[in-house]
């Protein structure tokens, strides 16, 4: 059977069971509202444009946060790969920081920047930076020495060698780093918005929860999941696959 067909059958039966269970009042709507209620909440949300404002606001923060974390992460990664001293000092700190979920920085961020946009973006940046750093570092450290030798015999050295050979050779690691950074940033953003201020998907989720609007809570969860899936599967996995193939790392 075709995988798509399998998936359609699978999802249809789950939703059908969920809807029927709700109609037979096997559980209360406040515990688990029915699919139709969720759909209604989503339609209302999009019609009065609150969800659209949320999406725009969340993506703005994500865009700024992810871009900053990729930039800072790449720069730090290059530094760690090139300087042994930096690797032995800053590198250790980054390994430790990477084990800390970035949301725990929020209380400090609120003290430093206030209960605002900047605090959330700060948490998002921290979410993606370190994983990007570590991938960039290993990308540069793992450049095949033969590429460097070949480039040297063709008169390339210094900055030229870095820009034209070392960096492009490390692109597969960069792509993996960016994909992980996106996933970490996305999670950090939702956590940050839940605990901070709006507008934004996470904020609306908490708002709906405070007013007992579980249909909207589930609706927002579904939006978060779908966006995560689309970006990861349709964008990053495709780019990663193309790069791995081109770089001869996968047939």
């Amino acid at each position: 059977m075709h995988p798509t067909l399998k998936r359609i059958i699978f999802f249809t039966s789950i939703i059908a069971f969920w809807e029927i269970g709700s109609r037979l009042e096997l559980w209360l709507p406040i515990i688990l509202p029915s699919p139709t209620m969720v759909l209604d909440a989503l339609v209302t949300g999009f019609e009065d444009k609150t969800l659209i404002y949320d999406l725009v606001a969340s993506f703005k923060r994500l865009g700024v946060g992810l871009a900053l974390s990729l930039l800072i992460g790449s720069a730090l990664g290059v530094l760690l790969a090139k300087s042994k001293t930096a690797d032995e000092t800053i590198g250790t700190v980054i390994l430790a920081l990477q084990a800390v979920p970035s949301i725990v920085w929020l209380p400090l961020a609120i003290m430093w920047f206030g209960m605002n946009e900047t605090s959330v973006i700060f948490v998002v940046v921290l979410g993606g930076t370190f994983v990007m750093t570590l991938n960039m570092r290993s990308g540069i450290k793992n450049v095949h020495p033969l590429y460097i030798k070949a480039a040297q015999t063709m008169g390339s050295r210094g900055w030229d060698l870095f820009v034209r050979v070392i960096f492009p050779a490390s692109i597969p690691h960069v792509v993996t780093g960016a994909r992980l950074a996106w996933a970490f940033c996305w999670r950090a953003l939702m956590a940050g918005e839940l605990l901070s201020t709006g507008p934004g998907l996470g904020y609306t989720l908490r708002f709906a929860s405070d007013f007992g609007n579980m249909a909207l809570v589930i609706g927002v969860m579904i939006i978060i999941g779908i966006i995560g899936y689309i970006v990861d599967q349709l964008i990053f996995q495709r780019v990663e696959k193309t790069v791995l193939k081109r770089w001869g790392l996968e047939s």
């Binding site: 063709m154 492009p168 770089w247």
Partner: peptide
């Protein structure tokens, strides 16, 4: 190393992110 001595290795050592033309023009840029 210098461009007066071209080197060919046992492995081709072509840059996989460049096509054939771009690989060959690499030293001429």
């Amino acid at each position: 190393p210098g461009k007066d001595r071209g080197m060919v290795f046992q492995q081709a050592a072509l840059f996989p992110w460049l096509n054939v033309m771009e690989n060959v023009t690499f030293p001429l840029k």
